[in-house]
Design a protein around this nucleic acid. Structure first.
Lengths: 151, 151
DNA sequence: AATAATCGTGGGTGTGGACCCACTATAGGG
DNA sequence: CCCTATAGTGGGTCCACACCCACGATTATT
């Protein structure tokens, strides 16, 4: 095993930043892979979650909250609306605005997706026991809050 | 602050997998950004590190170790060789093979890049104290080893 | 020798992400 | 009213990343 030809350079593994980027990438990959089976992407999940947590948004507001381009969000909203996960209603007070509202179906779907995400997470965090998972989560939350949370 | 229109959905932040992907992404981004200033990418750093840690490799071996496509690695080796960071010598025993060897200049460069990476890391980990950083590093290392390390 | 396998390499492809511009419809200020 | 600003949207661009194929050079096999 000293001569494992696929071992990564130890000097890189000493860099926490490298590990973060590496582990984060596989996490992202596994999540995306799972969602792709349903024809969805990560931001679809994020949109549903945001609507569930904060209630209806105009497209612009939702784009701002999630740090997405309004144009891209519009396309994603298209798909979610087509799938019946959300309603798009023209705001009568300002007819330029479209208000996105989660449907009951969307709420159900969100629950399913969250369950799938948790399944993926269980695989990823398999090497850790319950206490360590809590620890990791807390540390990551601090890092998330510490920089660029608004994006 | 209850009504911060840019706050992320709490239900997502409860998912460690999501946090991992999010934090990992900014880590990757910051590292890449820093390296880009030198006209390099993450895998350039990985190549230099691997050569420093394990000594000379043929291109094929290095590609296997880093999980890169041989063709892509060849292109990257081009640039590193052009910059004088490594030597490409034809193996006299098997003239198909090119052996990549770190030059002294390459070793120096690697030290510089590592220092830059550590600077980035210091920013990223700013919210954590020394003990927490050690903790985080250990947890990530377990996760890294736990799945897909060979990639 | 002749044939098969291997290394490096050039030149692709496909995908995803982030971004951006022009345009319509609508609203609001003077 | 006219002019400016804003919401949404369609249609792009650009870049990174991963992958893959074909080919020349070389080596191994028989």
């Amino acid at each position: 095993m000293e001569t494992d030809p696929t071992a990564a350079p130890p000097s890189l593994l000493e860099l926490t930043a490298y590990l973060l980027s590496r582990v984060g990438k596989t996490a992202r990959g596994r999540l995306a892979e799972r969602l792709a089976a349903d024809g969805l992407r990560l931001f679809h999940l994020a949109m549903l979650a945001a609507l569930a947590d904060f209630g209806p948004h105009t497209q612009r507001d939702l784009a701002r909250r999630l740090g997405l381009d309004p144009s891209d969000l519009a396309k994603a909203a298209d798909q979610l609306a087509a799938a019946g996960h959300l309603d798009r209603t023209r705001d009568p007070a300002d007819r330029r605005r479209l208000t996105l509202t989660l449907t009951t179906a969307g709420r159900t779907r969100l629950a399913e997706l969250t369950a799938e995400a948790e399944a993926v997470q269980a695989e990823l965090l398999a090497p850790l026991d319950a206490a360590e998972r809590v620890q990791l989560h807390a540390l990551l939350l601090r890092l998330y809050g510490g920089s660029g949370n608004g994006n």
